[in-house]
Design a protein around this nucleic acid. Sequence first.
DNA 1: GATTCATGTAACTTTATATGTTACGAAATA
DNA 2: TATTTCGTAACATATAAAGTTACATGAATC
Lengths: 152, 152
Amino acid sequence: MNRDNRLSSILHVLLHMADRPAPATSETLAQIMQTNPVVVRRVMAGLRKRGIVRSERGHGGGWTLIRDPADVTLRDIYDGIGAPPLFAIGNRNAAPHCAIERSVNAVLDSTLKAAGTLLLKSFETVTLAKLHDGLRRRLGAPPSAPNRRRVS
Amino acid sequence: MNRDNRLSSILHVLLHMADRPAPATSETLAQIMQTNPVVVRRVMAGLRKRGIVRSERGHGGGWTLIRDPADVTLRDIYDGIGAPPLFAIGNRNAAPHCAIERSVNAVLDSTLKAAGTLLLKSFETVTLAKLHDGLRRRLGAPPSAPNRRRVS
DNA sequence: GATTCATGTAACTTTATATGTTACGAAATA
DNA sequence: TATTTCGTAACATATAAAGTTACATGAATC
């Protein structure tokens, strides 16, 4: 199975955006993500719908983070990319005829659902600001100030 | 991403095996799983290595559950199929050059790892016997007796 | 208003991986 | 020896993420 990397990719990009004067073009962000600008637009479109970023067209256009990094959680971003499946394992048939299989599926589903709920809860505790400050400490840099210019 | 259904499938098959006089051929189990006998052998091979089932060749051969269903947990079966990835989400690059990306990856990894550990712990609490009795209650059937003949 | 820049999005291609299939060898029983 | 059944390599198919191309839309600059 191919892993869905959008959450990881977009987190990375958003942290770069928090360190830059807005707006950043899809082209610029694509270089950071090491991918194609269309992939950037596709994934950012979901965040725009949830009011996390804004896009502007034409000269000087691009993408801008429009919410306070302290208010944006990993959960918000996860929802922004469409809340894709969390687990790589699952049931074969959604509604099997065999009663034994239905019973197995029910147990597995509820187990996974409980684990997923916990994971999403932990996503809620991680904000962009925390990540931002956390990595600054790792890098030995001074505490963050929003939107100060800084080289990638 | 394609979901890995082996855990679900094999659980289903093992519960059928617990209800049958052993051994059951790959052909028979394939019909229960609605798949190909080779797929059955492939997945059962992992369980054999961990001493959960035994295989015999030739006339009257097939697969036999050789551990007490009360001692076989979901975790054992998960390990038996090779402990495949639990999550459908993950990092893009294992070892990125960008420090920000490394930091993001580290946070995401540790979050997923913690969730995975909890999930595996819950797998350890589910045994074949519990599933077996649980579904009997659902079906209104009498309490289980090991290896009693029963139609699929 | 024409040109350039940048997003919006549909359509298609590529890639990865789980699953399915074919083929044939090895071992056990009748 | 013939039949049954597993063991396994090799190949085919299906699905979904990611990548790419193409072109339309809108905004800023000239």
